[in-house]
Design a protein around this nucleic acid. Structure first.
Lengths: 208, 208, 208, 208
DNA sequence: AATGAATGAGATTTCATTCAT
DNA sequence: TATGAATGAAATCTCATTCAT
């Protein structure tokens, strides 16, 4: 199990806990981590008191969401690279379209969430593993010649993180097309060795 | 004059007003539009009372900032395309590195700011003009063969808006390199006709 | 049996009840009667649910503690005065050093507890008997010439109640010495007919 | 000026501040330092917001009350001992009947208030000076032969602190008589060299 | 006109009490 | 019956906005 769910909870309490984390993930993704706690509780279908029994304050809830999302992202990337070590496009699309990634990045916007994450050993551990996975992915893909040679895992991360944000779209129906097309352009930019990039290849730890 | 500054104000009142808008722009860019009003007032070096005399509520301040920033962006794009109608790279770099663009996009994150902007005729006017400028820019550049033919002004806007966001960078010194490299990759993706893009070319009004 | 323990309870339920009253006594003495119910339950080693099964609300728990403590104090004073009707010093030291007295007085600090006690017929009954015991003690001791003649059982109670409170002591080891010395000074003040006291002798019912 | 009032406040703000401290002093004395902030605000005739503008949290209000009360007590003791260095009875009565002392002692009941006071350099300074004043007072009085020789300034403090607490009194009219008589008995105990006291003379720093 | 003090509505958090397991 | 999870009312605290100086 990649997440820190406490399996010792009573069944109903456990269900509530999961609903709370899930609701929080949804609203964090939509509105960032400062949403009223009542809103989260309401969406989870519980009273505020219940929320506070599980998570003594907002920070601890943010931490739980971060651990859950990071864990899932790590698992997905692990699974793909285990099968095809150089499948950078698959990974890129996976992450660009992943709800869990969106939460991660959305949490990255708030100084508060960033602090919490950086103090959480579990999250840091996952981050390190992700860094390693991406490093290997980039190197392998460049050896295979599918990925331009002058970028590093850091550049790759940055470009992915861009796609994960709320993209503008006046009409809701277009949202997916907007995302898919932007993704495709960026993948094209990554594939072809274009004009020389300024500076030097960045590694993931330099940007995450 | 591109902005709606009231030239009938006394010189000192005018100075105050400008300081407030400037301070608001700065903190909006850093922390989004929900910063405490006192913080804005403090940074502007005035009392809250003065802020409220100029801007009866937060919405009106957000509106003023939006009008100011949009106006300046429009002016810059106008200036460049007047000289070289197909200079899409120049425009792209201009916007990617512009503080005013950053404010605009940061305001785009908040539902509240989006509503305000969409109800402001002045902003809508600028937006329409910007849309036209971008349309012409894209078409001209595609005729010149410097820009891939399968994108529209909407796709172009989306990709620019990505670059304008806070990019991740663990070390502050790297921030600029991160931005410049990401910009270069995206420009490469826009230049070369790569794999076929999914869907159809999007126009600016569809995404802004 | 001096207290109102329900002898019809099953053995384990009875043990629970006693543990709860004892835990409550301890924390009431330490922190007053507004401690969180969970804290009391935890110290008693039971769940809150069990606590509430025994005592439907906080008031009823306070009442039970009061009845228990008052009962024990009454029993002790009874025992001493039965043997030596004028042993005022013995009684004074007994009470000054008694945990049960401390609880009683601590409960006296809170308006809430005072109300509960004054509405509880059992406690009132004990109080009346205590009053009588003290009256007789004071009169006898004054006839024997060991207690100054110008004080009443009320003054006596007041001075005892002072000793029963948390005395200040920066170092914990000194706590006992602090208490013993203060007690001795007060007993000296009670023994010797010193300067004339202001007002008139007070009776116990006037102050309790 | 012995207290830390900020004389730079605007007149009305200053008046409000004083009213808040005064109201807090009153309710702290009556109910201890955990009274609802709204209650304090109401008694001071201001909104909660005003209270929080002056005192960002409860601790800071407790601190302000402590500084104010300690300062006044110190000033009074200073004044008396300056005129008559051995006037221990005057000082004792002064403190026993002083509202400021009552607040100080009431605050001493709460662990929280104790922590705050012990971290406040201003309060600590006053405490040290008070300690010195009492030391000298006790020594002088013992040289004059009016105070029993076997007590220290610590014992003296303890006995005074007892008098300062809420004394029991069923009828409110008797409260004063109760206090005056208890004070007189204790002063008698302090005057006459009675039976030998257990332990050794305690100094003020040992108990405060 | 500018200031910053006061207000009170809303958000966070705690805890007495009830109720499902 | 015992447990501890859920609830919601009450307390704490923040901040947008108004108003006295």
């Amino acid at each position: 199990m990649s997440t820190d769910r406490d399996t010792s909870l009573r069944a109903d309490a456990r269900r509530n806990r999961d609903q709370i984390v899930d609701a929080a993930k949804t609203v964090f993704q939509e509105q960032g981590p400062e949403v009223p706690m009542e809103e989260i509780a309401r969406r989870a279908g519980v009273g505020v008191g219940t929320l506070y029994r599980r998570f003594p304050d907002r920070d601890s809830l943010i931490g739980a969401v971060a651990r859950d999302s990071f864990g899932r992202v790590r698992d997905e990337v692990r699974a793909v690279t285990a099968k095809e070590p150089g499948a950078w496009e698959t990974v890129a699309r996976l992450l660009a379209y992943s709800r869990e990634m969106r939460v991660m990045v959305q949490l990255g916007f708030s100084e508060r969430a960033r602090t919490i994450k950086s103090h959480d050993p579990f999250v840091r551990g996952i981050q390190e593993e992700l860094t390693d996975l991406l490093d290997r992915l980039v190197v392998t893909a460049q050896e295979e010649g599918t990925l331009r040679p002058d970028i590093g895992s850091g550049d790759f991360s940055v470009l992915l993180s861009l796609l994960v944000r709320h993209l503008p779209a006046a009409q809701e129906e277009l949202a997916d097309m907007v995302l898919h097309r932007a993704t495709a352009v960026i993948l094209d930019g990554l594939r072809t060795p274009g004009g020389p990039l300024p500076g030097r290849a960045l590694t993931a730890p330099e940007v995450l």
